[in-house]
């Protein structure tokens, strides 16, 4: 009996911990966004450095994954659709799956693994080596100088990466479909154009990727900022970033899809 009550208490405690963590994360984000003092140096320079670290350095993994996913989609789609004689719809299949789902979701998952974990480790290490404290002692708010540029860099880079991923994937699909399997190019692109709507598909996919960028970056910087400043604490925080961010992306994807495409 006591054991059951202990378990319930444990559940309650972890629930409270989680709510507290969400509260701390929200306070951190609000202060990072609305604080003013960045010390010296323009915010755009700091932002450019972070977009480089978060976006440009993620470009290779995003492009390579995009090409391959597009090619696989093209091949799988062709093999199924050719049985019904509708292989010219491969373009539409590839484009719709990429633009609506795979582009934002896979990019966000890769982004969490590539950029999110790096952000957490970097900020955690800055905390462990007292760089954040010393910055505060000098009179610069680390939330503004360290956290804010990284946050905005993530929110800006994610949708761009997702667009690049989708576009590269579609070209990968056309490489397999048109150049290799011999689907007529006109119907490949034509079907795609007819099936994909700018407002309902491209923009909604873009909104998804902005939301994912926001959530993944937020989780990553908070885990770093809140990490226990030891080597073990940082490694656990990095793992948590990847796990939480991936789960958040997949869960949110379902909700967003239900809201955006559910009533179509």
């Amino acid at each position: 009996m006591n054991r059951i009550i202990d378990q319930i208490a444990l559940l309650g405690r972890s629930g409270l911990d989680m709510i507290q963590a969400i509260g701390r994360a929200t306070i951190m984000l609000v202060q990072a966004i609305f604080g003013r003092n960045t010390g010296h140096g323009s915010f755009s320079t700091l932002l450019a450095q972070q977009i480089y670290a978060v976006g440009v350095l993620s470009l290779i993994i995003i492009t390579v994954s995009g090409v391959f996913i597009g090619m696989v989609l093209g091949l799988q789609g062709y093999n199924i659709l050719v049985r019904y004689g509708t292989e010219q719809s491969v373009g539409q299949l590839v484009a719709l799956s990429l633009v609506r789902e795979l582009g934002p979701v896979v990019t966000a998952l890769l982004f969490a693994g590539r950029a999110g974990s790096a952000l957490t480790a970097e900020i955690g290490l800055m905390k462990a080596t007292e760089q954040l404290s010393s910055m505060e002692m000098i009179g610069v708010d680390p939330l503004k100088r360290i956290i804010a540029p990284r946050f905005w860099a993530g929110v800006i880079s994610m949708p761009l990466l997702a667009c690049i991923f989708s576009m590269v994937g579609i070209f990968g699909g056309s490489m397999v479909g048109v150049d290799w399997l011999g689907i007529y190019e006109g119907s490949f692109w034509g079907n795609m154009e007819q099936a994909v709507d700018f407002r309902n598909d491209v923009i909604d996919g873009l909104i998804k990727s902005v939301v994912f960028g926001f959530v993944v970056t937020w989780i990553a910087i908070f885990q770093g900022y809140d990490a226990v400043p030891t080597s073990e604490g940082i490694s656990r925080a990095t793992t948590r970033t990847v796990v939480y961010a991936s789960l958040a992306v997949l869960g949110l994807d379902f909700i967003l899809t239900a809201v955006m495409f559910g009533d179509l």
Partner: peptide, 23 residues
Amino acid sequence: SVGAFLLAGLFALVLLALRVSGL
């Protein structure tokens, strides 16, 4: 490289709009 990255991202979006969705 950041400038090039931003351009590449916007270019991809434009392609998605014009080439893929036929806007």
